[in-house]
Simulated assay, not measured.
Amino acid sequence: MDNRLIPITKTVDALVIGGGPAGSSCALWLHKLGVDTLLVEAGDRLGGLQRRSPYENLWIPGVMGQTGEQVAEALHAHIVAAGVPHLLQTRIGNIRPTAEGYEVTFGTTRVLTKHLIVATGTKPNAGPFQPSDCVVIGPGHPMENLPVDNRKIAILGGGDNAFDQARFVLQRGAKSVTIFSRTTPRAQALLQASVPEVRVIVGPYTADPARLTVNGDRFDGFGVMYGFMASVPEGLNITNENGYVEVNRDGETSRPQVWACGEVTDYWHPCVTTAAAHGIQVAKQISRRLARTPATIPS
């Protein structure tokens, strides 16, 4: 559809794409700093990947005892209570540069914004696999829904999530768990030590999801833990060689007035707390930039 046929329905100073910890924190701070802001999220609730996690998040200071889902729900409730303008179940269509900023379409809505913030986070890397009743991609609820009682389960990957999920699968009554890692496992030593009963096979392997075999050995289910990959809106061309969004110290990308924050940038040590902090830092930079150039986009 030609964007010119869609009337401009909103003009803002900042449009934040993605409602996880980074995007929600960025939008919250922009809103409280007096910046006309709109937050858009593809899902039906805010909270990002924390919505997938039924496990207690032991790494966030001050929220001891709360699961990832509860952290996500608290984030959603905060945005609503603070009155931050936001749209749910909204997928971005076209993004086009204008003289003053960017034109963004989603559905029958066209928004003009001076600053565009990409906070779309990451998604589990599926590799060559497709999810099915017996093949699960990534940690959290998908793995919890995999039948494991008295079954042989193969975990593919050698990171933290591989060993974490192996532990949870054993706790749920699996007959055995085997981790296949092509290289020396990179998971934390404490996580590896927590599952001494798990067999770890290091080296090349061939996994057949149709037959549920790895190197010819038959299993009852696969857990694919190949880490995460950035979810980047199409058409921006702001990624590095690893597929993540490249940003400078301020959080601005190679395209003027396009910013990014959180795990989509692979910025230092990705987690909930660093993502939220990065979103706040970007909000402060945008607020300062607007204070120096206060003119708004003409409607």
Rank of each mutant, 00 (worst) to 15 (best):
N3F: 04
T9V: 09
V12N: 08
D13E: 14
L15T: 04
G18D: 05
G19D: 02
A22D: 03
K32M: 12
V35T: 15
E41I: 09
R45K: 15
G48T: 08
W59T: 10
P61D: 07
V63E: 09
Q66E: 14
E69T: 08
A81Q: 15
V84W: 07
R96P: 00
R96F: 01
P97Q: 10
E100L: 08
Y102N: 07
T108F: 03
H115C: 05
L116K: 12
T120V: 07
G121W: 03
I137N: 10
I137D: 02
E144K: 14
N145S: 13
N145T: 05
V148S: 08
D149Y: 11
K152Y: 01
I155L: 14
Q165A: 09
A166C: 06
R167Y: 09
F168E: 13
V169I: 14
L170N: 10
A174D: 02
V177M: 06
V177Y: 05
T183L: 02
Q188W: 07
S194W: 01
P196K: 14
V202I: 15
P204S: 14
P204M: 09
Y205F: 15
A207R: 11
A210G: 01
L212F: 03
V214L: 07
G216Y: 11
G216H: 11
G223Y: 02
G227P: 00
I238A: 12
T239D: 04
T239V: 15
G243T: 06
V247R: 07
S254I: 10
E263K: 04
W268I: 12
T274P: 00
Q281A: 11
V282E: 05
V282L: 09
I286Q: 07
R288E: 13
A291H: 04
R292Q: 14
T296P: 00
